[in-house]
C-alpha cells in the first residue's frame, strides 16, 4: 500500500472499526488496515491518546477496540478538516 497521509490513515482505521459495528479485535484490524505492525502500533497509540478509540475486554477475555464518540465525530468532520487544511495550506 502506498504511503498515506497521517489523517487519512487515522480515518481509514476508524472506518474499519465503524463498519465492524463499532468494535473489532486488534489482529483483524491490523490486517484490514494494510499497515506494517510497527506503523499500526504507532497509529493505534496515537488514536488511543487522542481518545478516538478505546479498548475493552469481553466475556471471553478477548481485547476489543471500540470507536469512541469522538472517533465517530472525527469521521463525520474528516472532509471538512481536510478541506480546511487545503484552503489554508496548513
Amino acid at each position: 500500500m502506498a504511503k498515506r497521509a497521517k489523517l487519512e490513515i487515522m480515518r481509514d482505521i476508524l472506518k474499519i472499526i465503524r463498519e465492524n459495528k463499532g468494535m473489532i479485535k486488534p489482529t483483524p484490524l491490523l490486517r484490514k488496515a494494510g499497515l506494517s505492525s510497527g506503523r499500526f502500533k504507532e497509529y493505534y497509540k496515537d488514536l488511543l491518546e487522542k481518545k478516538l478509540v478505546s479498548e475493552s475486554v469481553n466475556d471471553t477475555s478477548d481485547k476489543q477496540i471500540l470507536i469512541t464518540e469522538k472517533g465517530s465525530k472525527f469521521l463525520e468532520r474528516y472532509r471538512t478538516i481536510i478541506e480546511f487544511i487545503d484552503e489554508f495550506d496548513l
Binding site: L52, F74, R77, I81, I85, L90
Partner: peptide
C-alpha cells in the same frame, strides 16, 4: 471556529494557525 477541528485531529498546522 477552529477549536473542534483541532480537538478532533490534533493537526499541527491547525494548531499554529
Amino acid at each position: 471556529a477552529t477549536r473542534e477541528m483541532y480537538d478532533l485531529s490534533k493537526y499541527n498546522g491547525i494548531k499554529f494557525f
